[in-house]
Simulated scan of single mutants.
Amino acid sequence: MTDPFKNRAISLSGPSRDLAPVTPDDNNDLPEIALALYIETAGTISFVSVSGTTRSVKVGNYAILPVGIRRIHATGTTATGLHSFTVQ
């Protein structure tokens, strides 16, 4: 099988290389900054953006939130089935 990602430089504008499940945590950042989030079940997401700003947004079922995120807070987050778009 050929790997179209093998010689491709990591890009913030290209496809992510993987999805990783996310467990919201008030005290710890994600293992790597998410390029975006995929959300399975509607609710609110409280997060710290890559710029360091704390935000709270409502999202619908099966939503994609296209913003760089460093932390997702457990407190204030009611949406479930969260997955980060990753580059690694």
Score class of each variant (00 low, 15 high):
Met1Asn: 11
Thr2Cys: 03
Asp3Ile: 09
Pro4Lys: 09
Phe5Ala: 14
Phe5Asp: 13
Phe5Ile: 11
Asn7Gly: 05
Arg8Ile: 12
Arg8Pro: 00
Ala9Val: 13
Ala9Ser: 13
Ile10Glu: 10
Ile10Arg: 14
Leu12Lys: 04
Leu12Gly: 06
Ser13Pro: 00
Gly14Lys: 09
Pro15Lys: 08
Pro15Thr: 08
Pro15Glu: 06
Pro15Ile: 08
Ser16Gln: 06
Ser16His: 11
Ser16Pro: 12
Ser16Ile: 01
Arg17Cys: 10
Asp18Ile: 07
Leu19Glu: 12
Leu19Ile: 13
Ala20Arg: 15
Pro21Asn: 04
Pro21His: 02
Val22Leu: 04
Thr23Leu: 12
Pro24Met: 04
Asp25Lys: 10
Asp25Glu: 06
Asn28Gly: 04
Asn28Asp: 09
Asn28Ile: 08
Asn28Ser: 13
Asn28Val: 11
Leu30Glu: 03
Pro31Leu: 07
Ile33Cys: 13
Ile33Trp: 03
Ala34Trp: 01
Ala34Glu: 04
Ala36Leu: 07
Ala36Phe: 07
Leu37Gln: 06
Leu37Lys: 03
Tyr38Leu: 11
Ala42Ser: 10
Gly43Lys: 03
Thr44Pro: 01
Ile45Met: 11
Ile45Asn: 00
Ile45Phe: 07
Ile45Arg: 01
Ile45Ser: 01
Ser46His: 15
Val48Ser: 12
Ser49Gly: 12
Val50Asn: 15
Val50Leu: 12
Ser51Thr: 15
Ser51Arg: 14
Gly52Thr: 05
Gly52Met: 07
Gly52Phe: 07
Arg55Cys: 12
Ser56Pro: 00
Val57Asn: 06
Lys58Asn: 15
Lys58His: 09
Val59Cys: 13
Gly60Trp: 00
Ala63Ser: 15
Ala63Cys: 09
Ile64Phe: 05
Leu65Asn: 02
Pro66Tyr: 04
Pro66Val: 08
Pro66Asp: 11
Val67Cys: 10
Gly68Tyr: 09
Gly68Ile: 04
Ile69Gly: 01
Arg70Met: 06
Arg71Phe: 00
Ala74Gly: 00
Ala74Asp: 06
Thr75His: 07
Thr75Lys: 08
Gly76Thr: 08
Gly76Met: 06
Thr77Leu: 02
Thr77Ser: 03
Thr77Phe: 01
Thr78Cys: 08
Ala79Gln: 03
Ala79Lys: 01
Gly81Ile: 04
His83Ala: 15
His83Cys: 13
Phe85Pro: 00
Thr86Met: 11
Val87Glu: 04
